[in-house]
């Protein structure tokens, strides 16, 4: 590709005690693309995106956003830089309401005296925006926007997490298995949402084990194996069984895909 990558990582290493989760991993995300990341369970996909989004600090390696080296010390810094992430474990607070969760860490305050001096939250505004986002995602089965997240079904929770990322992401949106718990209709909505976000010009990193979904929406597929990037393939040039074969080590990846 001729354009410069928006987000890059080189030589990332992350060890948890004696377990090596990332072993000299590289990563490139280009502007406006959908990059799928696939790999076996435990390949290190979640560790990779956690290192990028500031949730864990890598032991080695460097990350650049728009060419500038970054080292987020917390997910908040990544969010402030426009990188929004849906983590595999969703990162929602069970006892808080849907609206409170969606705005956690960036709450809207009331106008005027109440907001400025008494720092009062603007619940109606937060609830309205939360409801709008969920409607956009087709999550019509959520009856009460003020209900605690722990009273939602697993898929509804996932929908809330995806809605939160879609509502706030401005530079990059990272989705770690966003459809794993979703129903047919809701998965379809998430895929449409992903394409919608792409149309807005925001690139997306999609981690998924669902090959049909990956091949349907991805522009490029990053195959992760044993803590590092094995290769990057174009979904138009390879079949799903090729991808699975590379990912599991059944087949060696082609020369031209290796360097990437």
């Amino acid at each position: 590709m001729a354009t410069q990558p928006l987000l890059t990582a080189r030589g990332l290493v992350k060890r948890y005690g004696r377990v090596t989760a990332l072993n000299q991993a590289d990563f490139d995300l280009y502007p406006g693309e959908i990059l799928a990341v696939i790999g076996d369970n435990g390949a290190g996909k979640s560790s990779l995106i956690k290192a990028i989004s500031g949730a864990v600090n890598p032991d080695e390696g460097e990350i650049r956003l728009e060419g500038k080296q970054i080292a987020f010390k917390s997910p908040m810094e990544a969010r402030d830089a426009g990188i929004e992430t849906v983590y595999q474990n969703l990162a929602l607070s069970p006892a808080l309401s849907i609206a409170d969760n969606m705005f956690l860490g960036r709450e809207i305050r009331k106008q005027g005296f109440m907001g400025q001096w008494l720092r009062m939250l603007d619940r109606p505004a937060m609830e309205k925006r939360a409801r709008d986002k969920l409607t956009e995602l087709g999550l019509m089965t959520i009856q009460n926007i003020g209900q605690a997240v722990e009273t939602l079904s697993g898929g509804q929770r996932q929908g809330v997490a995806v809605a939160r990322a879609a509502a706030f992401g401005s530079k990059v949106i990272i989705l770690d298995e966003p459809t794993a718990a979703l129903g047919v209709k809701e998965s379809r909505r998430v895929l449409e949402l992903i394409l919608d976000v792409k149309r807005r010009g925001i690139p997306i990193v999609l981690i998924s084990h669902n090959m049909p979904h990956v091949f349907e929406v991805a522009d490029r597929i990053h195959i992760h194996r044993l803590g590092r990037r094995l290769c990057v393939i174009n979904p138009k040039d390879y079949t799903m069984s090729d991808a699975v074969a590379f990912m599991t080590g059944a087949k060696a990846p082609p020369e031209e895909a290796l360097a990437a």
């Binding site: 949730a55 474990n89 929602l92 607070s93 006892a95 808080l96 956690l104 860490g105 939250l121």
Partner: peptide
């Protein structure tokens, strides 16, 4: 709300940027 979130699930609160 952050006080509640921290007590509820500290890991989730941290990932949410608190």
């Amino acid at each position: 709300r952050h006080v509640y979130a921290v007590g509820d699930d500290p890991e989730a609160a941290k990932l949410s940027g608190i």
